[in-house]
Computed example of a mutant assay.
Amino acid sequence: MRKILIPTVILLILIAIIILRPKERVVEYVPIKFVEARIVDQGLVQDRVELLGTVVGEKQVTITPDVIGRVVKKLKPEGSYLKRNEPILIIQNDLVGFEYKKSYVRSPIAGRLAKIFVDVGQRVSPQVPVAMVIDSRDLKIELGIPERFASRLKKGMEAEVLAGTDSRKVRARIYEIGPYVDPQTGTVLSRLRFLRRPEGVLPGMVARVRLIFDERDVVIRIPKESMVEGNVFVIRGGRIHRVIPEVGLSGSDYLEVKSGLRTGDTLVIFGQEFLEDGDSVKVEVES
């Protein structure tokens, strides 16, 4: 009897230990996602396109001679200022059967002799350009604008321009819009005038033109890439909150926010594609 009792007691003690032993706590693993964020601020939102144009003179003419012959003398060096009708070259008519006489190539406008295309002794004809004269007192920009923007062009529309040695952007305004789309380039030729002539700008220079269709300044704005299917994600207390903001102007880089966000909010700008409400995140804030 005693032999049976001892194992039974031991078994009961083991069962009691198992039952009364504290249960292990089950810790739920919550993954932390890494994102990049920035602080929502106020600033400029622009709907724009950036293009390259060419600076040209208000008047710019390529001159051809009236006769066939040879260039016998250059009367003016390149860079000279010319009065209207002032001679540039002398051409000797040397066609057999015609009277050999000198003919003058004259400038049809007042301006600067930009280029002489021929040398003394060279044979020329009315089909051969011999010189270019530019009136550079007033400069303009010729700009080919892609046809997808053609319907949005308006006379008086302003642009920001960087040209010449002036590192500051200056404003220009469209004063002429071409009547058709060039089938070879797919662009509409437009012309702009400087509102203030930049320093060191010369005809023939490349102008970097930022054509502004619409803009809002000192508004709450967010980067376009921060929005995913109409949603943005802000971080509060280390957790994600999904927000559907009311958007105003859609610019080239930024969106205007009318409501739903405020300055100082921490906005996710990278890694938001896989976020859900309530996610824990470790954030790197863009400076």
Rank of each mutant, 00 (worst) to 15 (best):
R84L: 09
G97V: 09
D66L: 08
T64Q: 06
S151T: 13
I134L: 08
L20M: 10
E199V: 04
S259W: 13
A163V: 03
P31N: 09
V9M: 07
E86I: 08
E142L: 06
K33A: 01
V26S: 04
A150C: 14
G230V: 13
Q92T: 01
L11M: 14
R208F: 00
R168S: 11
V120P: 03
K115G: 12
G204Q: 09
N93M: 03
G178E: 15
R84Q: 15
L20T: 01
G121W: 07
G178P: 15
F233N: 01
Q272M: 11
Y81L: 11
L14F: 14
I134S: 13
F98K: 14
V61S: 08
L275E: 12
L89F: 14
R38G: 03
V133I: 15
I17W: 11
V120T: 15
R25W: 05
P7M: 06
I134G: 04
L261Y: 12
G278K: 07
K224N: 05
K33S: 03
V61Q: 04
L51A: 00
I222R: 09
F233A: 12
A150P: 13
R242G: 08
D253W: 06
G200T: 01
I222E: 03
K115P: 12
V206I: 14
Q46D: 06
L52P: 02
E36K: 04
S136Q: 02
G264P: 02
V247W: 06
L261I: 05
V9A: 09
V247C: 08
R239E: 15
V120E: 10
G57K: 07
R112A: 06
V181G: 03
M157W: 02
L11K: 02
R262N: 15
G238W: 12
G260V: 13
P126M: 12
G264D: 06
L261Q: 06
R193H: 05
V128Y: 13
P65K: 04
V45G: 05
I17T: 07
D66A: 04
V268M: 06
V120G: 09
G121Y: 04
V188A: 05
E28M: 08
T64H: 06
D135P: 15
I220E: 07
V130G: 01
I6N: 02
D279A: 09
R239K: 15
N231I: 11
E286Y: 01
I244E: 03
P126H: 13
V206D: 00
L192E: 08
G43R: 08
K102E: 14
I63V: 05
D214M: 13
S167Y: 05
I141P: 01
K169T: 03
P129M: 06
P65N: 09
D265S: 13
G278F: 03
P203I: 04
V257Y: 02
D47N: 11
K74V: 07
I32V: 14
S280H: 15
